[in-house]
């Protein structure tokens, strides 16, 4: 049984939970796998720590929680500090390098992207989560690129499809480049 376990972490307002939802939707509806998306947030309207967990499996998922993720993507230093101790030897770590300063020596499969800066270049910081999704898709292939794009298109507000597709493509090609240049930056 193949079971991919993804934790996305950041702070409220970055669209972390939406990113997890999009990933689950892509895996479930378009890659036709089993997927469960759970969310964890505090009572703050924005700014508090937030996390989403996505389990993708070939078989039915009874336990939806993740102890040791196969993929960890973080968009805040707090999330990095909190969840990186839960990484396994082979966990793929993806970070927004504008927001997270990792202890590089500790990670042998680290991939960094300036997701927030790319989003700013595109004119909307709000799409940093979708840049990150493109990046995750390219590096980990946990969801097919077609499925993920379809899920993004169906999940973002009307009128923002083009911007979000641009954001996804930027993250995706950045990821493909990273894969070419190195297996992981930590090595």
């Amino acid at each position: 049984m193949k079971r991919d376990e993804i934790i996305l972490g950041g702070f409220g307002g970055q669209g972390i939970i939406l990113a997890g939802y999009i990933m689950g939707k892509g895996a479930s509806l378009f890659d036709k796998k089993h997927a469960t998306h759970i969310q964890d947030y505090g009572p703050e309207a924005r700014g508090g720590a937030c996390r989403t967990e996505v389990v993708i499996s070939d078989s039915r998922i009874s336990y939806p929680y993740i102890d040791n993720p196969s993929i960890l993507a973080v968009m805040s230093q707090e999330a990095y500090t909190k969840y990186s101790p839960r990484m396994r030897q082979d966990t793929v770590l993806l970070i927004d390098e504008n927001l997270v300063k990792p202890k590089r020596r500790k990670h042998n499969r680290l991939f960094a992207i300036p997701a927030t800066r790319i989003a700013q270049e595109l004119g909307r910081t709000a799409v940093a989560n979708v840049v990150m999704l493109g990046f995750i898709t390219a590096v980990t292939k946990v969801v097919s690129v077609e499925a993920m794009k379809q899920a993004v298109l169906e999940s973002v507000p009307k009128g923002t499809e083009e911007l979000n597709m641009k954001a996804f493509d930027r993250g995706y090609s950045y990821g493909l480049e990273k894969l070419k240049t190195a297996e992981g930056e930590g090595k």
Binding site: G20, Y21, G24, K25, S28, L29, H34, A35, T36, H37, I38, Q39, P64
Partner: peptide, 9 residues
């Protein structure tokens, strides 16, 4: 809450 906020098909 878990079931209410859990995304699935």
């Amino acid at each position: 809450e878990i079931v209410g906020h859990m995304g699935e098909k």
